[in-house]
Design a protein around this nucleic acid. Structure first.
Lengths: 217, 217
DNA sequence: CGAAAGATTGAGCTTGTTCAAGCCCCGTGG
DNA sequence: CCACGGGGCTTGAACAAGCTCAATCTTTCG
């Protein structure tokens, strides 16, 4: 896709913030490598993580479409990305319908992931939420082929777990520890080795659910 | 917009279900009148409501883009709608970039609303959640000009409250009752009169937050 | 009128929170 | 080389928010 190459401004970025809520200049990014996440903050400081971006994902479509972001994006690791100027979005719709369709498809897929996430936070117990998050990221890593010997990079700190799942830090850690002791996974440095993704019937069901088709872009 | 007229198949619909998770035939709908909502169910029957559709909203963009729906849509009232055949979506992108852009815009806005919702469920207390839901729907009704004397149609049953906010039915009712007694609102038949949307500083802040710009479509 | 669905309330219990203390790892400076 | 200090992680104990079970009341509708 030549056009993608042409507007590429891919530099190694180490900045923790890609953009912040309220930014009017949020651009559209493709994440070449590294992990990031999208979140909201409330006036009193509480923070809700909305979704994660593994390598290869599109970042900022929602913010670009709505002109102003109502969320922020931060990195979890060092990242490398490619920038599309936001102002050309309309031109994409006008001149490159296939690309426009693919962007919209990725947007719809992201919404689907937020749907998943909301369902988890609204309906699951702490155990189920932590397991679902771990196994969900494991499955995404599998589909991206970045799993090595059942182990994959797990760049979240404990606080991210808590802010993702709507749990207190203390309880998130306790539950995490309990699941580790139960033999669901084993931390290996920054990585996580999944030992038994079917620890409970319910988790097995979740793990075996069919995947969504892959992105086209 | 003549094209909209041309493909219009607007019939009065009373059916409770517009489509169900797994449907491959989910179409794209414009809701002329009435309310609906989008939800997911878990294998064990738990149910999470993802968002509501007030009159005028677009339904099914995500499902259309992803080909198969992973959620269901049900009505809250009698509704009237206009159908776009899903198969023509690609043609819209190809031939009507403005309409495609507007659809994508509405999709992005819906994702933003799910973001709001996830943040509420993940971070707010039961009191805050119920108040935020009521006041949020009130504000949407305001922006649609369907508020009459501070009162608007509130078509949710108690169970919808619970399934929306991740609370048990009993606790949702208790909290609802407490807020009613505290003077936030007053039920008037199927309608709700908002008496004091600034009952607490936090709710006032939420209520006074600036609105998102309106849909263009 | 009677049945069924929805709404409400009480009581006891469980899950998850808060507060508080201690641990571990690592980078910095004496 | 080691003490110091800070950030992140872990654990304990007391408390509270929210859940479950169960009974009653109300409304709707055939």
């Amino acid at each position: 896709m030549e056009w993608t190459q042409k507007t590429k401004a891919g530099a190694l970025r180490v900045a923790a913030d890609l953009f912040r809520a309220g930014d009017v200049n949020a651009e559209l990014y493709t994440l070449y490598s590294g992990w990031a996440f999208r979140y909201r903050t409330l006036p009193d400081g509480r923070c809700q993580i909305l979704n994660f971006f593994p390598p290869g994902d599109l970042i900022g479509f929602q913010a670009s479409m709505l002109s102003a972001a109502d969320h922020s994006v931060e990195t979890l690791t060092e990242i490398e990305l490619c920038v599309f100027p936001r102002k050309r979005i309309w031109r994409i719709f006008e001149q490159m319908p296939e690309l426009a369709f693919q962007l919209a498809w990725l947007g719809a897929r992201e919404e689907g992931m937020v749907d998943d996430h909301l369902t988890a936070v609204g309906q699951l117990s702490a155990f189920e939420r932590i397991s679902a998050l771990i196994v969900g990221l494991y499955r995404r890593a599998q589909s991206l082929d970045i799993v090595d010997n059942d182990a994959f990079l797990f760049p979240l700190r404990r606080e991210h777990l808590a802010d993702t799942l709507g749990l207190s830090l203390v309880h998130a850690i306790r539950t995490w520890t309990a699941l580790r002791r139960a033999g669901l996974f084993e931390p290996v440095g920054q990585r996580l080795r999944i030992l038994n993704p079917r620890i409970s019937p319910r988790l097995a069901l979740f793990y075996d659910q069919q995947r969504r088709p892959r992105p086209i872009l």
